[in-house]
Write a protein that binds this DNA or RNA. Sequence first.
RNA 1: GCCGAAGUGGCGGAAUGGCAGACGCAGCGGAUUCAAAAUCCGCCGCCCUCUCGGGCGUGUCGGUUCGACUCCGACCUUCGGCACCA
Length: 889
Amino acid sequence: MANERPRYVPAEIEEKWQQRWEQEGVFVSVRRPGRPKLYVLDMFPYPSGAGLHVGHPEGYTATDIVARYKRMRGFDVLHPMGWDAFGLPAEQYAITHGVHPAVTTATNIATFKRQLKRLGFSYDWSRELSTTDENYVRWTQWIFLKLFERGLAYQSETPVNWCPALGTVLANEEVIDGRSERGNHPVIRMPLRQWTLRITAYAERLLSDLEGLDWPETKKKQEDWIGRSEGATVFFPLADRAGHLEIFTTRPDTLLGATYMVLAPEHPLVDEITTEAQQAKVLAYRAEVASRSDMARTALSKTKTGVFTGAYAKNPISGERIPIWIADFVLASYGTGAIMSVPAHDQRDFEFARQFGLPIVEVVSPDGELHDASTWSKAFDGDGINVRSGFLNGKRTPEAKSAMIAYLEEQNLGTRRVNYKLRDWVFSRQRYWGEPIPIYFPVELHPGSSDPRTDAHTIRFDQPIAVHEDELPLRLPDLQDYKPSDDPSGPLARALDWRYFQRDGRWFARETNTMPQWAGSCWYYLRFLDPTNHQQIFSPQAYDDWMPVDLYVGGSEHAVLHLLYARFWHKVLFDMGLVKHKEPFTKLVHQGLILGELEFSTFRGEDGSLVSFEQVDLTDEDAPRLKGSGLPLRREKLTESMIQKVDKKFVLAERPDIVVDARSFKMSKSRGNVVNPDKIIEQYGADALRVYEMFMGPLEAVKPWQTNGVVGVFRFLDRVWNICTQATSTAPALPEDAQRLLHKTIQKVTEDIEGMRFNTAISAMMILVNRLGEIPRIPVDAAEKFALILSPFAPHLAEELWSRLGHRELLAWEPWPEYDPSLVVDDVVELAVQVNGKVRSRVTLKKTATEAEARAAIADDPALRPFTEGKTEKKFLYIPGRIINLVVG
RNA sequence: GCCGAAGUGGCGGAAUGGCAGACGCAGCGGAUUCAAAAUCCGCCGCCCUCUCGGGCGUGUCGGUUCGACUCCGACCUUCGGCACCA
């Protein structure tokens, strides 16, 4: 059809508007007096070599909609973007390809930036930053120095997973059964000098300040992570010798039920107290434990292990002698690394007692009667009434706890105490691509030595010296070889000329560990306030202009670590008077993961026989096995035509006894189900991608991708184009129902954006467009209103329509349309008429109709007759504007 | 094991005490076309019925209510987090 009317071709309009926005600096954040402000922040990405995937634009589109909407509402909006660019992948790539991480990082950032720009996000790019920028590193290091000055950064000897073959320290997750996940090399537990941040000093504030934050279930996760518990410290004197054991317990009320004690194998007192007879066993046990990782120690071991030290302690109340054991279920890093064991009232202690035949004595009874705990099948760890407990007898658990603590304090045998699961934060990495820690140490040359780069020397790690602020940033040396080596001090140790330097005739050595990737992301939201400031980390004015962050959107994988670390730094800066709010992020939202397209698959044994899904053990995702026998199976992809649904299960069409696995997988290169946003944009345009990402479902939900769904959204935008480009000023006014629908849609979209329910906002706009499509000619005014409410979602299309409707100014400057309140409420509505709660008819009634009018309206309804005939009315329910329900019997 | 979230058509989802399945995808039928694409129109939970219509239906079982996807109790399943923290 040779129609002159131009078609909707996104490729022809999107770049044009992106350029116009940039030229006119529409999205450069400026504070204007008298305006409200909004700081909308995305979790900035790690610019990986793979480029953007469709998961990135999900959260970014959501914040962009909010940012654009709020600008139209008269807010001054800060909406920045940057790069979390330090980290392992760039370094790994450098090792295998011989390209400097700075080079790959720059390339990746360029790719990400190009891809983000194609999506038309309204970022203020003039504030762009990368954590790798010298100007940023400088202030990251500056904060480290402040931590150091305050005693919040200290060195410690922490056992780490050291893999000599890989020449690196591994995270706990990277160690499986004492071997490296990559390469299956042996991993040893080795104490290594580490920089550690004293986050535990802030445990209480990190916990209590969560209150009042508009955060989702993440708050709970952080609470659990911090793990506050109340109890008491108790001193148990050693029997037969001087000294005592200090333990922490949350159940001081059970003190008299303690029948033995357990120390962590690493506990410093173990050497002292172990008797000669037990020496060999204890040593052997400790060696065995040392070779196991934390994971193996905790998760995998079901049966308890342990060894008797030969020593005894005395119950501080009863004076009874009780044996002291060591066992690996007691963690050296929690509490005091020692416990009193009350097997009757703690499941772990119970299992251990059973394992080694230790006595189990009831001191808390569920009913106040005496029971024989040695016959129990599990511990009683609930609240009850104390028995066999002297002065505690008859007291209920909460009361008994405080009575015991009072007694302990009075007798100097112990004190009330609060304990946290939260540990101090191991802050050093034996890696190249990170911020150098701005610390150096004096070097002692050995006799005959003159140059530590070649001669024997000792580095005095016990005398750390802060790099002077004026010398920041401390840059990374330009290494050619980033490989970790068998030297756990890391690759920087090989940059001898960087590491060693002379000052006033003395030699010094720099710290060669670097900071973890978390460092840069801990405070980037603050640098966005004032990213080019060379004198200060940010100016107080910039802070007052924009802080706090009003909306922070990112993945829930950062629910604990990043968000806890950032809060910790923020609180330190608060104590320094640099920031004025206790908390940085007022409202937090996690976008849900986007999975790959739904896949069907079946399983075959080695002999090729089909296996029904119920018989498949998927404990290891990538290695399916037959339940029971453990025989390996092969996963085989199916096409939809081979599947049938029977009773809520998918089965093979040809073999209905074979149940098929139907699920969406996380997108991954190896699975080959990654969707590239560039491809989608080429085919359907950025606006369709944006709208589809928001239309998929609730922002927070995990959702599978369906490329077909993009088609539906594209059709919608195409219809919008057709309707709005045909709008004329001479068209008759909209029919009343359409006019009402338009205003209801404005209301719905407004409220849904405020509540971040973008999927329902879009469906409301689709409903409106479907109605408008039935009307031959649309007035310009209606088209304009529609373009305005669509603009946060599909900004390019909206701008194009806006200009075609005769506007020269950018739509981004326009105010958000108001709806007419008189048009959004209907005075006449269709009501459902129920008989005994089932809908049998409908009736059109005024909202203000009285009960009598309602009765009259349905009196002669033939549709109701079959259900009311011969029955008596028991009740007549009429809720104006909602429902009529006739109860008969 | 503990904590949290969620279970609704073939698929994504909507409705949070008042007409279940809006909106979209897929599918089926039609119009247009030489043909196709695109577009437009109609149908589209399951079962019974020629039709009119009726019955059933929101993971399962029970409860509250005139009325329950929605509230309460128990259970099942899936996803996420934590995992010997004394």
